[in-house]
C-alpha cells in the first residue's frame, strides 16, 4: 500500500503556508440509530448499503477498507494520511471508502453513519466543498438521510447539526509562533466562529508549528458562507505569517539562513532520525521555502511529513520495525528523497 491521499501524493501546490484544505460532511441514514446506539446488525447494514453503493456505482470508483480486517499499523497509516480519524481506526464496525484519486474518503460508522470528506493540497476550500458536495449528491440520490426541517442534517453530536459541515485548513505558522503572536491570533479567530487545533486533531499539540483551523458553527450558516468565512480568515493569517517572516528575515537574514541550511544538512545526512526531530527540521525547511531562502518543491515537504510518520513508514515499506529501526528507516527515506529533489533543482 502506498500513500493514497491526494494532498500528499498528488500535491502540486506552491503554497508553503497552507498545507491542505478539507471539507467534511456528517450524514446519517434515516431509520437507523446513530453508530453509538445501533446494534451490530444495524452497523453491518450501514456498511453493506453504503460500501456497496460506493464500490459499485460511484463515478470515480472507491476502494473500501474494513477496520476489522486491517492490521493496526495500516489503520494508523490511514490516520496519519488524514484519510480516517483516530476514532474510526479503533472501531470494529468501522470502514472507509477512499476514491481512486485519493481526494475523497467516506468514513462509515464513525460517530455518524457517514463522514464524507474531501482533502486537497494548498488553499482549495471551494474545490474541496464541491468535491464533498458531489459525493453527497451521488449518495443522496440513493439513500435517505436523517433531516429535520429546522435543524437540518441530524448528527449524533449537536455540535455538528445543520450542514454537518466542518471545513478546515492545515497551516504552517512558524513566524507567528516565534514572534509570540500565535496565542493572540488563535484567541481572536474564536470571534469569527472558528477554532484551532494541532496537526492530528482535537487534543493534540501543534508539532512543527502546524495548526488546523476550522469552523465551529455548523447550523444557521450555509456551506458556501462557511467556506467564504474560513477562507477570508486564512488569507489574513497567511498575510500575517508572511509579514512576520519577512520582518524576521530582514532583521537577521544570516541567522535564519543558517538555521534553514543546518536543518537541510541534518536531514540529508542523519542516519537515525526520530519523528519529533524530523518534524522540527522539516518545519525549518518549509520556513526556508516560505522566506525564499531555499528552493524546494513544497509538495515534497508535505509528502515527507506523512512518509515519516510511524504507521505510513512501516506500511509503505511493508515491514514491521521497532523504534530504532523506524528512526533509521526514516533517516534513509528523508535523506534519499531530499537529495533526489535537490539534484533535480540544481540541474
Amino acid at each position: 500500500m502506498d500513500c493514497r491521499a491526494k494532498w500528499v501524493a498528488g500535491g502540486e501546490t506552491s503554497d508553503p503556508i497552507v498545507i491542505s484544505s478539507r471539507v467534511r460532511l456528517a450524514r446519517n441514514l434515516k431509520g437507523i440509530p446513530f453508530p453509538g446506539a445501533m446494534s451490530s446488525k444495524e452497523g453491518s447494514e450501514v456498511l453493506s448499503r453504503v460500501a456497496t453503493l460506493l464500490e459499485q456505482k460511484a463515478p470515480h470508483g472507491y476502494e473500501v477498507f474494513y477496520m476489522a480486517k486491517m492490521p493496526q499499523v495500516e489503520r494508523l497509516a490511514l490516520v496519519e494520511e488524514h484519510l480516517i480519524s483516530y476514532d474510526l481506526a479503533n472501531k470494529t464496525e468501522g470502514a472507509v471508502a477512499i476514491s481512486r484519486d485519493g481526494a475523497t474518503s467516506v468514513m462509515l460508522n464513525e460517530e455518524d453513519h457517514l463522514r464524507i470528506q474531501a482533502l486537497l493540497p494548498g488553499l482549495s476550500l471551494e474545490e474541496a466543498w464541491q468535491t464533498a458536495d458531489s459525493c453527497d449528491d451521488f449518495l443522496e440520490a440513493e439513500l435517505d438521510f436523517a433531516f429535520h426541517e429546522d435543524y437540518g442534517y441530524l448528527t449524533a453530536c449537536p455540535t455538528n447539526v445543520g450542514t454537518g459541515m466542518r471545513a478546515s485548513v492545515m497551516l504552517h505558522l512558524p513566524a507567528l509562533v516565534e514572534s509570540r503572536q500565535i496565542g493572540r491570533l488563535l484567541a481572536a479567530i474564536g470571534q469569527f466562529g472558528l477554532m484551532a487545533r494541532g496537526l492530528y486533531g482535537e487534543g493534540t499539540e501543534a508539532k512543527g508549528s502546524i495548526f488546523q483551523i476550522s469552523n465551529q458553527v455548523t447550523c444557521g450558516i450555509a456551506e458556501d458562507e462557511i467556506v467564504r468565512n474560513l477562507k477570508a480568515v486564512v488569507e489574513q493569517i497567511k498575510a500575517q505569517e508572511q509579514a512576520h517572516l519577512q520582518k524576521m528575515v530582514a532583521l537577521q537574514r544570516a541567522k535564519i539562513e543558517d538555521r534553514v541550511y543546518r536543518a537541510l544538512g541534518l536531514l540529508t545526512n542523519a542516519r537515525v532520525l526520530d519523528s519529533s526531530e524530523a518534524m522540527v527540521l522539516l518545519s525549518e525547511l518549509r520556513l526556508g521555502v516560505s522566506a525564499g531562502l531555499l528552493s524546494l518543491p513544497v509538495g515534497v515537504l508535505s509528502e515527507l511529513l506523512v512518509l515519516m510518520q510511524p504507521g505510513v513508514l512501516q506500511t509503505v515499506n511493508k515491514v514491521n520495525l521497532d523504534a530504532l529501526e523506524r528512526d533509521i528507516k526514516r533517516g534513509e527515506i528523508v535523506r534519499r528523497r531530499l537529495l533526489e529533489v535537490l539534484g533535480r533543482e540544481k540541474q
Binding site: D136, F147, E149, Y151, G152, G162, T163, C219, E225
Partner: peptide
C-alpha cells in the same frame, strides 16, 4: 443548547434532494 452552540439554530444551505420537498 443548540442556541448556545450555533447562535440561530435554523438550518441554512443544502437540502436533501429527496424528502425535502416539504421543506
Amino acid at each position: 443548547l443548540l442556541k448556545r452552540i450555533h447562535g440561530t439554530p435554523t438550518h441554512q444551505g443544502k437540502l436533501p434532494s429527496r424528502g425535502a420537498l416539504s421543506v
